[in-house]
Design a protein around this nucleic acid. Structure first.
Lengths: 380, 380
DNA sequence: GCTTGATATGAATCTCCAC
DNA sequence: AGTGGAGATTCATATCAAG
């Protein structure tokens, strides 16, 4: 039996940002589906979600109790849901939920799977076997990992995430400029330094103990959702736990679906998500990728008077100059054509982005013509 | 036919540190075995080596040419030895050499395998299938990786190493104190920051081009051999290439066996190892990376909740104000970008240190955002 | 000798849309 | 489905020449 736990009190009013992509789908949005993850996934329609974030059991295969040097016992993850009879049993389980995930995912959607060395090599190989196309593996470098108390190995200080598309040709979402902004104007790398989930962020049960042994930090989901979804996109988390995915999705204006078996986790997750307030529209805005911005032809700037015919363009170092013609083409040293073609020809390069190559003098300073394009876009 | 290339000129005198573990074995020590790695491994005796370091083909599956933004072509690893017909073919190859490796390895020996996301999940799963016991996965975080030139994914900035014993009960070598000493008296973690192999360390061919497309840095092998072998131990490298393993083994007083198919690589390796003199302590420590102060991006403060999206920043004199967006960019007077770029734009300056320019009100007082960065650093 | 700037390069699964 | 054009895209080092 499926039990659905609605989390938002007024779903109708909480959906102002729903994109057309999610409209009209027979999807239980912003709700926790109670039950076995494979059984619940089987009920969801094909090609219906934009992203899947999966934090499956790690199959830790722990031995006896581990003691700290001062004598206390380490509170290990020894729950039944993390136990499998064999690697083969773990593989079977993984194959099954990955098959459902692949069915549910839109063709241009992506899947994230997180794990440790105990299980991530099984997951990675089975993802590839299921024809998923790995886009990156990401290392979550823990700023404050648990030390190796026995001094027998290297401190296990990271976990691994796999980011995959459904196939090589998929046109997946990657908000390159938002990630670059998040990383001080440098490309975001495949290694992420983030603290583990602790302090007030860590969900507690009624007794004040940690509610879930492997709660993920919100900063991790924040980066993933910001990088690989658009506002209004639907994110499915088949191993919902205490609902980090739901809380961050709500905060960032994304829709979510959680699947979870354990009532104790569901109770914590529902309360937590209800308390996670969505950001307002302006705070949620991120840097727009030029690829996804509406196209503006250079000629349009000429037509609209922002760049009058006859304007002289130069490159940043004033090595070359060109003059703008009435139809938006430019002319330099006997060559005429688009800002891109002429830029490429002058440099002897195979290609050239004329928007950043050509400059105009505004207020005594050289500005790339791209600035004018941005102004034009902002005025729309 | 096996051709053996002896590298040390006087093997008898070059074995002062030979441990009893290597004595009496019928092993071709400190030599390069010429030929196919599986065929050559098949000739080595069972349970005879203390460690195997393997840098197998990654099966990169590259498409057409990749151009840099300025127009030059990326010199890709497109050698025939990296090409496989299918994942299944790669798996078959991997299973075969892993079976030989397991046979040759002593019961308390360990194996290291390095790879990227293209192949490491195959290798990891097959290692587990062959009953190897993963001790750690290690992330080599490259200090200077190649960027993602098209802005399509996260910069692929790391490679992964797997360290495995033959089974769960094996009494493997791990020089805990040596690793701790190497890491400023802190436990050595599973993520290692090391530069890629370049400069004078990079082997060149007769034409002055790089002799091998994927030469590994000596610092990487240095750490591995120092951590997991004892002086006199025998290290087998079945994918020897230009012999980094041999050169570092010689420097550290370990014995080595290399297997390599390509004559051009063997020639370079033999000369290189002959020139590799055992290092004195001081020069060894300079090979190890210095712990650089962790760089903190403004976006990290946003992700971690220290500066929530929507926060208003002002300069010290409250002349300008800006609001923080979800991706760590800020927006003021129609301009959006990093704290540095927007600060510069508002002042009409060529550059600006956003960390000291922008302030937030904390407890009724304006504090530079740099203060929050310091707080974050202190909390790590 | 030192600083500054130009150039080169590294295991890379590296575009998208209209015609 | 293939083709062609628009236009988007790079970080850390090392080396070497110029000042």
């Amino acid at each position: 039996m499926t039990i659905i736990v609605p989390v938002s009190e007024s779903p109708g009013r909480s959906r102002p940002r729903t994109s057309p992509r999610a409209v009209g789908r027979d999807l239980p949005l912003d709700e926790i589906l109670v039950g076995d993850c494979i059984a619940q996934m089987a009920k969801l329609p094909a090609k219906s979600v934009d992203m899947i974030f999966a934090d499956p059991p790690y199959n830790l295969q722990l031995g006896g109790d581990l003691m700290r040097p001062e004598g206390s016992k380490v509170d290990a993850c020894d729950d039944d849901w993390d136990k499998f009879d064999s690697l083969a049993a773990y593989d079977d389980f993984t194959r099954e939920w990955l098959a459902e995930a692949r069915r549910i995912l839109k063709d241009n959607g992506t899947i994230w799977v997180i794990g440790s060395y105990h299980n991530i090599y099984r997951c990675g190989a089975l993802l590839q076997d299921a024809d998923f196309w790995i886009l990156n593996d990401i290392v979550w470098r823990k700023a404050n990992p648990m030390p190796n108390f026995r001094g027998t190995r290297f401190t296990n200080a990271h976990e691994t995430l796999l980011w995959c598309a459904k196939d090589e040709k998929a046109r997946y979402t990657f908000n390159y400029q938002a990630m670059k902004a998040l990383n001080d104007d440098l490309q975001m790398r495949s290694d992420w330094v983030l603290p583990i989930c602790s302090g007030s962020e860590r969900c507690k049960d009624d007794k004040g103990d940690k509610a879930h042994p492997t709660q993920k930090p919100e900063a991790l989901l924040y980066r993933i959702l910001l990088a690989c979804t658009k506002p209004g996109d639907v994110v499915l988390d088949p191993f919902f736990g205490t609902g980090t995915t739901g809380a961050v999705a709500r905060r960032l204006g994304r829709r979510w679906i959680g699947i979870e078996r354990e009532p104790a986790y569901i109770k914590v997750a529902a309360r937590r998500i209800a308390e996670a307030l969505p950001l307002d529209e302006s705070s949620m805005t991120t840097m727009i990728d030029k690829r996804s911005a509406p196209r503006v032809a250079f000629g349009l700037l000429v037509e609209s008077g922002l760049v009058p015919p006859g304007t002289v363009l130069t490159d940043a170092k004033r090595r070359w100059s060109a003059s703008v013609r009435a139809d938006g083409s430019i002319e330099a040293e006997g060559t005429a054509g688009s800002i891109h073609k002429v830029g490429a020809a002058l440099q002897g390069a195979p290609s050239c982005n004329g928007w950043t190559f050509w400059h105009v003098e505004i207020g005594g300073r050289l500005q790339p013509v791209d600035t004018l394009r941005q102004q034009h876009l902002a005025s729309l």
